[in-house]
């Protein structure tokens, strides 16, 4: 009787979310997939089915290849710049520290700033003549490091990665810390009693026991990094096309330009479809490759 009543409640509880999911997710996704196979140019123009034509064009489009390359650079380099300090800071916050709350606050504070505002702040920090960074570098005798950050094809993407990691690292530290909290404290304590150093504990106990959390976070990072947009748009747009010499043009900024500036909706949809497939496949691949046997002590 009780079970029956519960079952009757399932539909009313699920329905609103289901409707929302269909309206904001499934329908746009299906339409995007469909548009990618048409020649729709917006403006109320008719659209006809053109098969794989847009995808053939993508194979020849050097701008798209450049955008893919930059997306992968951002994902790989950004991942390295994110996870190494995030792990270190999360571990440090697990240790008995004075003013731990203050440190936690300082690390988490940038997260609450809107990404566009954070992008503007960093745009000014990097400004070569009126910014903060270059005068500091010049005054400490590191003039050679004072480069035109956002104007340099070599440094612009790296400068953006640093800014976006500064903004978001707090969330990742929080997630890693939550994973570390789940490690039973008697394991590292016992290892220390047996004479293990902090590094040995970190390497042989913390990382293996945290691995399941880390691999999920890595997949999440890949998904997020391949969709990067805001910092790039704010810091090297919107007037320039993809930063100096296209050095900050990533998949999403290119899709945005093609669809919203040039009104090539069909071509942009085809790109979005390729992007979707790439993210999906890469996530599965990384998920599969990072599988380890469950560690138990």
């Amino acid at each position: 009787m009780f079970q029956q009543a519960r079952r009757r409640l399932i539909l009313p509880f699920i329905l609103p979310q289901l409707i929302l999911y269909v309206v904001v997710m499934l329908i746009p996704l299906t339409l995007t997939l469909y548009y990618g196979f048409t020649n729709w140019q917006g403006h109320g123009n008719p659209r006809t089915w053109v098969g794989f034509q847009n995808f053939d064009v993508l194979l020849q489009d050097g701008n798209f290849h450049n955008a893919i390359e930059n997306s992968f650079r951002l994902t790989a380099f950004g991942g390295f710049l994110l996870f190494v300090p995030a792990l270190a800071i999360a571990w440090a916050l697990q240790q008995p520290l004075r003013a731990k709350r203050m440190f936690s606050f300082l690390i988490l504070a940038p997260v609450v700033i809107a990404a566009s505002v954070a992008g503007l702040i960093w745009k000014w920090i990097y400004n070569p003549s009126q910014g903060l960074l270059n005068p500091v570098l010049e005054n400490i005798g590191a003039e050679r490091l004072a480069v035109p950050w956002l104007g340099s094809p070599r440094w612009a993407l790296i400068a953006i990665i640093v800014a976006s990691i500064w903004h978001g690292i707090g969330t990742w530290i929080l997630l890693i810390s939550a994973g570390m909290d789940r490690i039973p404290p008697d394991l590292p304590d016992a290892a220390k009693l047996d004479g293990a150093s902090d590094w040995q504990v970190f390497r042989n106990i913390t990382i293996p026991l945290l691995w399941e959390v880390l691999r999920i976070l890595i997949v999440l990072w890949i998904i997020q990094a391949l969709q990067a947009f805001t910092f790039i748009f704010v810091m090297t747009g919107p007037v320039a096309v993809g930063g100096p010499l296209g050095s900050t043009d990533v998949m999403v900024t290119y899709v945005y330009r093609v669809a919203f500036n040039d009104f090539k909706w069909a071509y942009g949809s085809a790109m979005a479809t390729v992007m979707l497939v790439m993210i999906f496949v890469l996530s599965l691949l990384v998920n599969r490759v990072t599988v380890r046997e469950t560690v138990e002590y």
């Binding site: 003549s129 035109p148 956002l150 104007g151 340099s152 320039a240």
Partner: peptide, 20 residues
């Protein structure tokens, strides 16, 4: 002007009016 290679257009225009 100095710093032209890193100055976005708003900054560049402002620097022009600042006599750079």
């Amino acid at each position: 002007m100095d710093g032209y290679d890193g100055a976005d257009f708003t900054t560049a225009q402002a620097l022009f009016f600042q006599g750079k």
